[in-house]
């Protein structure tokens, strides 16, 4: 494992911890899109089916369990927790999952590494992860007061994706036969979706003003 990959995974972990901190400690999920969180839960549930079929490493297994557990518990908190659920911006979070899930499923049945259930679901999880942030970005645009934790959460998620690209470049040049077209294209598309957010995030940082996305 190279430094970019490790840094990417740690940034991903940090993003989840920031979100759990907000939900668990402040008991608020204001500004967080339940749609995005549900899409992540589906993403991990379909991608990490290999927990039952392949053993890669202790690190790999532990991280998968953490991402699965955290994504489902965040969804649980937002839907069921008697205090947290009240802070959910239901009326603002209007993106339809269905419009993302269906095209991803169709695409996965046509473009995959192998036409088996496991490989189709793996490709589906990559397509879905690439677009899962969209409801969150839409919600951010509609939120007047983006709190620091929410801004940091989205920033850390974007940083995780950018670090994964560096990891792929590194692996491409250092490992023989390391080629993952589907992963790469999805990863680049996903990272590009953050470009606009990054721009405003750095602007607000530089000027030391509150983050706000133009509608």
């Amino acid at each position: 494992m190279n430094i970019f990959r490790l840094a990417g995974d740690m940034t991903h972990l940090a993003s989840v911890l920031v979100l759990l901190l907000k939900i668990h400690t402040i008991k608020s999920c204001a500004g967080i899109s339940l749609k995005t969180q549900e899409l992540y839960a589906i993403t991990f549930a379909t991608r990490y089916l290999d927990l039952f079929t392949d053993y890669i490493s202790f690190y790999n297994t532990v991280m998968k369990i953490i991402f699965l557990g955290s994504s489902f518990s965040i969804v649980w908190y937002m839907r069921r927790h008697k205090v947290v659920r009240r802070s959910y911006d239901r009326d603002q979070d209007t993106f339809r999952h269905f419009f993302l899930i269906l095209p991803c499923l169709l695409l996965a049945t046509f473009i995959n590494e192998k036409l088996t259930a496991k490989e189709v679901l793996w490709a589906f999880s990559l397509y879905l992860e690439a677009v899962a942030i969209l409801p969150q970005l839409v919600l951010l645009q509609r939120t007047r007061n983006i709190d620091n934790l929410t801004g940091q959460y989205v920033f850390l998620l974007g940083a995780y994706r950018a670090l994964y690209i560096l990891n792929w470049i590194y692996r491409y040049f250092t490992e023989a036969r390391y080629v993952h077209w589907i992963t790469w294209i999805c990863g680049v598309v996903q990272t590009l979706l953050y470009a606009d957010f990054f721009y405003y995030y750095f602007q607000s940082w530089k000027k030391n003003v509150k983050l706000e996305l133009p509608a």
Partner: peptide, 10 residues
């Protein structure tokens, strides 16, 4: 084995 079939990333 083809390295592309081993999915060791998260």
């Amino acid at each position: 084995a083809n390295s592309a079939s081993i999915k060791d990333e998260l």
